[in-house]
Design a protein around this nucleic acid. Sequence first.
RNA 1: CGGGGUGUGGCGCAGUUGGUAGCGCGCAGCGUUUGGGACGCUGAGGUCGGAGGUUCGAGCCCUCUCACCCCGACCA
Length: 566
Amino acid sequence: MRLSQLFGKTQREIPADADTISHQLMLRAGMIRQLTAGVYSYLPIALRSMRKIENIIRDEMNKAGGQEICMPVLQPIELWEKSGRGASFGKNLFRLFDRKERELALGPTHEEVVTDLVGRSVQSYRDLPLLLYQIQTKFRDEPRPRGGLVRVREFVMKDLYSFDTDAEGLDISYRKMVNAYKNIFSRCGLPVIMIEADSGAIGGKDSNEFMAISEMGEDEIIYCESCGKAANAEKARSIKAKADNSEPRPMEEVSTPGCKTIDEVCHYLKLDPVNTIKAVFYMADDEFIFVCIRGDIDVNEVKLKNSLHCSDLRLATEEEVAAAGITAGFASPIGLKNIKTVVDESIASGTNFVAGGNKYDTHIKNVNFPRDFKADIIADIALAAAGDGCIHCGAKLLATRGVEVGHVFKLGTFLSEKMGAYYIDANGDSKPIVMGCYGIGIGRLMAAAVEINHDDKGIIWPKNIAPYQIYLCPLFLENPLVTEKAESLYRELQEMEMEVLYDDRNESTGIKFNDADLLGIPLRITVSPRSLEKGCIEVKWRSEKQSELVALDKAIEKIKDMITGK
RNA sequence: CGGGGUGUGGCGCAGUUGGUAGCGCGCAGCGUUUGGGACGCUGAGGUCGGAGGUUCGAGCCCUCUCACCCCGACCA
């Protein structure tokens, strides 16, 4: 490709509304253009990289036994009503009406369609297992798109669905996918870690995310350096500091004037937060929920939501708290009536806590569970934090951030039962197909790769997903020798099917080198009068500082070796 | 949905007490240049996000509205 003809100019200025590195670099490199919030056009450079990624994914999916299909983006709303997930997707589902006023959705994912499809065609256990995938555009009306391609409303995703006769079969499919995913990310030059993840309200047992470690990532990862276990903070469990565990003593009211927060109470009574009970109030599908957790621990709302089996969870407003008859700042679980109470396990494992007195300026000492108050639900709803103990090996946990580039789920039979996807087993019995689903966001993967592989000059593409392999950069084009040599190199490299971006623009050296660095093509070849005088050209890896002189007659061979060998 | 911010040429920005819309980059032409975003001259390009209002006069003041960005909420 001749750079003079490439659609998508580089630009020097950083666009004002991009503040993640990958977004800035992709805009400056002329790769993407935003149309509206969370919706982008992909220009040739970006598309080439995405096609590379897609083809790596295709290759690994096919190797794992996947068959590629293509399913509709436009989906009848009935399908979503049938699965019951229209409600749980809620406003994230793009909805529209056709001319007959029939309601449709733009697919945010394809479990419904694929389950319907497979349910209609699979009849026997002999038809299973089955691995079907597609690389298709998804639509999700995200409340807040952000970070360039990191979170968007229209995006291309590879989604594979596995169909097995039983849980053992699902385990095998799942392992195949995990293995394929590891290969994919490794081939894309993107270091990822696989972590335990929450499967959401609908998922089955197991779920893992593949995270690219990056400060701009949206997810917090809690991990253990000593045993290597890692989990999304939404899911992570940890060993918390020990609370008092002495013999329960009788309750005792104490005056705590103006002490509304745990910090104030602890300071006033000279206590450690570990020995206090914190009350937090939520609305779960419009039901008021009283949550008790130790003063030193934060509530993990995902865990709480899972333990309540609700679809909507949010903090209660001050008005709602007051309406429930609770004295804010001095709330007490003792003597609660007709309010659903969730107690964190941390409360059950300690004694003699300080809790609110349910009247102003009063707390109660020596509160013990379940002696003094009851719980409707006792569960682990604690947010794991850096510094906690690892539940596997006891070492101190660490925290970092990551971009979720892949997610695998064991769905089980929930959807197949809802959608009527059954098969006949060897005994002639009808059984629901056991499902799994496995996704990779293409654009997000590319953004993560840029985020992780760059320097202050620009992108440094991993070789396998680079839009081009070679940046052919002649200097002083008015010199006929330079032009002649560059043109012949371009021709020869193309004949060898090398991917060459040829900077045939009559620009100054600075512009050309800076664009080469910005675009981040792995190998730069410089043709200039200075090196031609020595009978040489220069080659330089984007990832390295030093260039190397290569004799003209050895050039093609050397370039070929560099591209294929390294 | 809550909080914060920004809308002026393709990009980045300035625009004073209300008085003929400017700068840098980029773009087009000509010339000089060229080993890390060169220089001179000439030129094109703007319903100042939109609507309403105040005023002799609004980019600037008032009201409403829309869009985009960031934090949070949300998020298979």
